[in-house]
Design a protein around this nucleic acid. Structure first.
Lengths: 136, 136
DNA sequence: GCTAGAACGACAACCATTCTCATACTTGGG
DNA sequence: CCCAAGTATGAGAATGGTTGTCGTTCTAGC
């Protein structure tokens, strides 16, 4: 159950997330926390991240590499990912905030949306060029 | 380089994917392939899946559990995922096919899109109810 | 048939994440 | 102020999907 103590844990981690540009992994958060007076075990970092996620404060996304990266939900960014080299660039498009897609259907099903991910996977310019010449 | 042999590997795997409802993991594909005369090592299954993905034939998505699931790209399905219990349901919404979102920006950046993922994460009805009564 | 190069697969290695469990802390009584 | 019960913590082990290794097998061209 969420005690006052729980919130004390969440706060420094949340601050770190907000100070960080882009997305950050749990491992990296753990490292950075070590440098402060709020150091916490890796297990705790994962526990707190899960709480923040379920509270709708933080969002999470899996990279192709398998590691999960986190960011505040209010930072509504999406991404282009190259399926070959894994290179990532941010995507200036959001189906939700652009108002082009309603979530009515979702809510009607009794589901409470907290955050969404929208990603486009493909080949970046560089990998397309390599494909033509060197080929893989 | 892609030899005729390579394509022979891809075909049975692709058939399995097309015969399967929804998404399927590499491990599961490997298991099912064992039952046929097209059995292949796990490493090969992963290799072929990567080729099919880079060829724009198959798409891939990571579940919260960490495992990757695959499906033919032409099956344009997206998902609702509960951040608590992990329950998944399909989502009758697509920002691309609904025409509400153009990919012009992406292409203009020299990026060649192959597939996209759109997921909404939140709390399913059951988990919302448990939250009220039992609380976590 | 022979050779060079590609593909294969069994198994080891990797690594992010989760689990375990003994310890430390918090809180509400007494 | 002290105690007991219930939580939270963290070090390290365990897990498990994925990727790397490397000797073997296959293919294509001659």
């Amino acid at each position: 159950m969420a005690s006052a103590n729980t919130f004390l844990r969440q706060q420094p981690l949340l601050q770190l997330l907000q100070q960080t540009d882009g997305e950050i992994s749990a491992q990296e958060l753990h490292q950075r926390l070590r440098a402060t007076r709020h150091r916490a075990g890796l297990a705790t970092v994962y526990r707190v991240l899960k709480q923040l996620q379920q509270a709708g404060i933080v969002r999470c996304r899996k990279l192709p590499s398998g590691e999960a990266v986190y960011a505040p939900v209010d930072r509504d960014e999406h991404h282009l990912t190259c399926v070959q080299c894994g290179h990532i660039q941010t995507l200036p498009l959001c189906p939700i905030s652009s108002g082009s897609l309603g979530l009515g259907v979702v809510v009607m099903q009794g589901f409470r949306p907290l955050f969404h991910t929208f990603e486009i996977h493909g080949l970046c310019r560089r990998c397309q060029q390599n494909e033509i010449s060197g080929n893989v």
